[in-house]
Write a protein that binds this DNA or RNA. Structure first.
Lengths: 340, 340
DNA sequence: TAACGCAACGAAAACGTTGGAGTGTTGAAA
DNA sequence: TTTCAACACTCCAACGTTTTCGTTGCGTTA
């Protein structure tokens, strides 16, 4: 076992000072040509690589960005990560990923851990519990310390920082408009409780679109699911005996559960009822029928977030206290669950 | 913007030395009670947190483990990460995730980046390209520097380290045994080409199981898919006019494609043909019919890998050069696609 | 009263790196 | 001969911690 080579060891071996080695490797004109060559050759031979930790300490930069997400076993978040990773790597940054598991405490712990020098900035999507508690002191704290933060997907007005979101309202409207175009009129929605911002916004879009088409809004056509673990049975009960010709589900899982419930009740998709989901994952693509869905373009969101963050990191001197909110376009992907 | 508090600043503010502050915060008996209280109160008030980078440099430990995976937009890998994250967090470790995107070069770059002080050890699954090139010098290099490495899923004999794998052969045999138990005899397999080790091993299991049951092996019942992007049409063609009563697919996607193809040919699943997949993802759970599948227990694999790695990290003094290979049991999850 | 013990604290080195400020030796211009 | 620039280095401080080894001052003991 041969431990890592340091400047000091090279210096001792070649009988020069540490600074000489450092400068030689950086091609400084202060160092004579032959000494430079000798040092470089030695360094290459023994595969010298500077120690990142020491550099971080010195430069007060880690060239690492932290990303904290509620859960990783979730297609949307992985696509976001993928996007972040790509541009981060391109720009010479590393990515540390932590999971909050939707827990407020874990979010705080991870944030504090990473904030103590490990990363230069954050990209994060709030944990469900955090949004419920409406306690953002941990984020405000790191922001006040001068750490750039970019929020995505699950954002909140109280936190003053760059944000990357999709236009949930517009996305939902697109879905409803499409359904109306296809001649559907009795449109239901399967959403989440309102403190999950996306559920709230998509429901708003649903309501607005109906309004714009002059369709009446019936409360009985709106389901807000509380307990994610029991979504199937809640949907089953909700749909029982209801006369709808289209359903807009705010996520993939609700969409598939909806279709299963409809099947059980003897209805055909898309013939009797059209179903549209939100988020374009494996499930949507491969389900039978394949789901028409509003795609969030997670990868693009991640890329935007990374660009925003790194931009802040590299231009901090400006001290421009202006925060941007990038809205990534959604697009409707038409598949079998709405084909007439 | 209030920058991070350091020991030095506390010391200056309270007019004591840095060492006194450090010791007070660590509750050293060297420091007088009242001084201690004063310092602690101040530190708490201004929310002092030691700088991780400085600690890493001093202790030569980062309390961070790196994990490099071929792709993140893949359910199996995310479950592994989830498992790693859980035990790592429990044991006070952070996780850095990097993606190789199945590229040899990116794997090397990420590995070198993380090896220069950023992490204490690695958990990784080899990139496809790396396995094709059979070039493992980058890994051998970091191992020779004394960095513990744990390989999972896609492992290779040439690298001497801890490993976590599943018994693919046994997993496949379980699937076939189950089908035979259910009275199926004409069993086909949809696999990948042989250089993908899992495809090869699962095919071996299939063959062995048939043999053990005294069933003849017919080459016409074996499909090895080359082009992942065209798997659906290859499967369609393969199944055309074939008389099978069960099909074992080596992954989720092939399983769903198989079912779709069967539907198109007017066959019912599971009544006419049973279908079993491999890997338990969202797709398997939510497909109609829900897929019977061989679960790889990715989370458990991740947890095992993390435990193995951290064990090596914390007991390095022993210098026990023995490497373990943990085999995580597969289990058959029975769902609708095989129900008689 | 000198020696000693002890409590309470400070100085300094170390981790690996960088970069500005010195230092010594040459050779050439004044 | 003196002066000075250029060259080719080395020294040192700094980043934030921890920890070992002092160094005080004071009260006790012989």
């Amino acid at each position: 076992m041969r431990p890592k080579l340091t400047l000091k060891q090279i210096a001792r071996e070649l009988e020069v000072s540490i600074s000489t080695v450092s400068k030689a490797l950086k091609d400084s004109p202060e160092i004579g040509e032959d000494t430079k060559q000798k040092i470089k050759a030695f360094a290459k031979l023994y595969n010298y690589k500077p120690n990142n930790i020491a550099l971080s300490l010195k430069n007060k930069k880690t060239k690492t960005i932290g990303i904290i997400i509620p859960e990783i076993v979730h297609h949307f978040f992985t696509t976001v990560i993928s996007g972040v990773e790509q541009v981060a790597n391109e720009l010479g940054y590393n990515v540390i990923i932590c999971l909050s598991n939707n827990s407020f405490d874990r979010e705080v712990i991870n944030l504090e851990m990473l904030a103590n020098g490990s990363t230069d900035g954050f990209i994060l999507s709030l944990a469900k519990e955090t949004m419920q508690k409406e306690d953002y002191h941990h984020l405000l704290e790191v922001i006040s310390q001068g750490m750039p933060v970019v929020l995505f997907d699950r954002v909140v007005e109280e936190i003053h920082c760059d944000k990357v979101i999709i236009d949930d309202v517009l996305g939902a409207k697109k879905a409803i408009n499409y359904l109306v175009d296809k001649g559907r009129r009795k449109i239901g929605i399967i959403s989440t409780v309102d403190y999950v911002s996306v559920g709230k916004l998509r429901t708003q879009g649903y309501l607005k679109a109906l309004e714009e088409h002059g369709l009446e809004i019936e409360k009985s056509r709106i389901l807000k699911i509380e307990d994610m673990d029991n979504s199937q049975s809640e949907i089953d009960a909700f749909l029982e005996g209801k006369d709808l010709d289209a359903i807009f589900a705010v996520n993939e899982l609700f969409a598939t559960h909806t279709i299963k419930a409809l099947h059980r009740q003897g209805k055909k998709v898309p013939e009797d009822v059209s179903v549209i989901g939100f988020t374009d994952g494996e499930l949507s693509k491969n389900f039978i029928p394949a789901l028409t869905t509003v795609s969030q373009h997670g990868e693009r969101m991640g890329a935007e977030a990374a660009r925003l963050l790194i931009d802040k990191l590299e231009h901090k001197p400006d001290e421009n206290e202006s925060y941007k909110t990038v809205i990534v376009e959604t697009s409707l992907i038409e598949r079998d669950s709405t084909k007439v």
